[in-house]
């Protein structure tokens, strides 16, 4: 999706970093086996996070590690975790990737996206048969977002909720005692991702004249504080869901992602803004 939900792996303990990486490589391996190279190029951190979350939650499910060289690492063998949840995350990656590619093709007529959509399309009937609920949610996500943007929707809860509703379904592989919490987790994480993306793209969208609901808020004097509060309070709801799940092993990696790594883009954004402000300030100072 957007790759926000990632760990800052420099902050992780060595064993945690190695495990996190083996899950990431495991999802990549699942993509390769199920979809070939076209699947691997759409690998992203957000769905590797989902694989890790489900692995940690359902740790009674069997998984094993394999050592293998791969295209991006031809010389050193990588540890790849093989698990039904890596397969599930790979399937969800392709599902989201297909709809995103179609949408991007319609929006900016990028031929690469059209090619990708065409390559992924043959897998869709199989995915639809296996995951009707997730497929319907993803299709609705793309459709509702396009509709909302076309009419210039300004309601942040509604707009962010579109992504939230889709991610809510993707977070639930099967209905069980944890699905209500996982749905809520996915819902608020999806909302956060939408808002973070809007915050990050604000200047770019403004220049291009693209839709961005935060443009209406940017002139507020307290915009920076408003934005921080918006993101924190939304993510806090997601984190509260995580804290109620019975996750013991690998919980620290997941917390590192949810409380720190996920803010990487935001930290970059505010650092760039601060630099811009300082530059602006020093120019003003020199003029005086």
């Amino acid at each position: 999706m957007f790759g926000y939900v990632a760990a800052n792996h420099k902050e992780l303990e060595a064993t945690d970093a190695a495990f996190y990486r083996s899950v990431y490589c495991g999802v990549c391996r699942s993509l390769q086996l199920r979809y070939g190279l076209k699947g691997r190029i759409i690998l992203n951190y957000d769905l590797a996070f989902l694989a890790l979350l489900l692995l940690a939650l359902y740790d009674e499910q069997p998984s094993h590690a394999e050592q293998r060289r791969c295209l991006t690492h031809p010389f050193t063998k990588q540890t790849q975790l093989r698990s039904p949840f890596c397969d599930y995350a790979a399937d969800m990656t392709v599902l989201l990737g297909y709809y995103k590619a179609c949408d991007d093709w319609q929006d900016d007529k990028n031929p690469a996206k059209q090619l990708l959509a065409r390559q992924l399309k043959p897998h869709l009937p199989q995915l639809e048969a296996q995951y009707p609920r997730q497929c319907a949610a993803t299709a609705a996500y793309i459709r509702d977002l396009a509709e909302a943007e076309a009419r210039g929707e300004s309601d942040l809860d509604y707009l962010a909720g579109i992504t939230g509703t889709a991610l809510a379904e993707l977070f639930v592989p099967t209905e069980d005692a944890w699905s209500a919490t996982l749905r809520r987790f996915g819902f608020f994480l999806g909302k956060f991702i939408y808002l973070m993306d809007a915050a990050e793209d604000l200047d770019k969208d403004k220049k291009k004249g693209s839709f961005n609901p935060l443009i209406a808020y940017q002139s507020r004097e307290d915009y920076a504080a408003f934005r921080a509060d918006l993101l924190t309070s939304t993510l806090a709801e997601a984190a509260a869901c995580f804290e109620r799940l019975p996750i013991v092993e690998h919980a620290e990696i997941l917390r590192h992602i949810l409380y720190s790594g996920i803010w990487l883009h935001y930290d970059r954004l505010t650092a760039a803004e601060r630099k811009e402000q300082e530059k602006h300030g020093s120019v003003q100072g020199a003029g005086r």
């Binding site: 760990a7 800052n8 902050e11 990486r21 970059r268």
Partner: peptide, 11 residues
């Protein structure tokens, strides 16, 4: 958990 560190390094 959080310290501001602007690079994760994509593997």
């Amino acid at each position: 958990y959080h310290t501001v560190n602007l690079c994760t390094g994509n593997w």
